[in-house]
Amino acid sequence: VDGGLETIALQLPAIVTTDLRLNEPRYVTLPNIMKAKKKPLDTVKPADLGVDVTPRLKTLKVSEPPKRSAGIVVKSVEELVTKLRNEAKVI
């Protein structure tokens, strides 16, 4: 979710939708936009398809991710290795 993490558990069958940022959007050309304006748009209600759209989700908790701390500028490779070894304990 925007600015955080959402974990859900659900029973199958299920429909999962995603945000536009999952993939790069396609850019439509102007001629295709003009063609789409001329096409009729059929409206179908969910009840006509036998679909129940009542909400079944309950939000338990929403929290923001922890704030990131500022980075540190090091002047040499030796200082970087020392900080990684002693402070971050990653090597």
Rank of each mutant, 00 (worst) to 15 (best):
V1L: 10
D2E: 10
G3Y: 03
G4D: 06
G4F: 04
G4L: 07
L5N: 02
L5F: 02
E6C: 09
E6V: 07
T7L: 13
I8N: 04
I8P: 00
I8M: 10
A9C: 09
A9D: 09
L10K: 02
L10S: 08
Q11T: 05
Q11D: 09
L12V: 07
P13M: 05
P13T: 04
I15L: 10
V16W: 01
V16G: 00
V16T: 01
V16M: 03
T18E: 11
T18S: 11
D19T: 12
D19F: 01
L20T: 07
R21Q: 09
R21C: 05
R21S: 10
R21V: 05
L22D: 08
L22S: 07
L22W: 04
L22K: 08
N23Q: 13
E24H: 03
E24P: 02
P25F: 00
R26N: 13
R26T: 14
Y27Q: 14
V28D: 09
T29Y: 08
P31V: 10
M34Q: 13
M34V: 13
A36L: 12
K37W: 11
K37H: 14
K37R: 15
K38H: 07
K38Q: 14
K39A: 13
K39M: 13
K39G: 03
K39T: 06
P40R: 14
P40V: 10
L41H: 12
D42T: 14
D42A: 15
D42W: 07
D42V: 14
T43S: 14
T43I: 15
V44C: 14
P46Q: 05
P46R: 07
A47F: 08
D48G: 03
L49D: 08
L49G: 06
G50M: 08
D52C: 04
D52V: 05
V53G: 00
V53K: 07
T54L: 07
P55V: 02
R56E: 11
R56K: 14
R56Y: 06
L57V: 06
L57Y: 03
L57A: 11
K58E: 09
T59H: 05
T59V: 15
T59D: 09
L60T: 02
L60H: 07
K61S: 12
K61D: 10
K61G: 01
V62D: 12
S63P: 00
E64R: 14
P65K: 12
P65T: 11
P66K: 10
K67G: 05
K67A: 15
R68F: 03
R68G: 06
R68Q: 12
S69I: 07
A70L: 13
A70Y: 06
I72E: 12
V73W: 05
K75W: 03
K75L: 05
K75P: 00
S76M: 09
E78A: 13
E79D: 13
L80I: 00
L80E: 11
L80T: 03
L80Y: 12
V81Y: 08
V81A: 13
T82S: 15
T82A: 15
T82F: 12
K83F: 03
L84A: 08
R85A: 10
N86Y: 02
N86R: 11
N86I: 01
E87C: 02
A88N: 06
A88L: 14
K89D: 04
K89Y: 04
I91W: 01
I91Q: 02
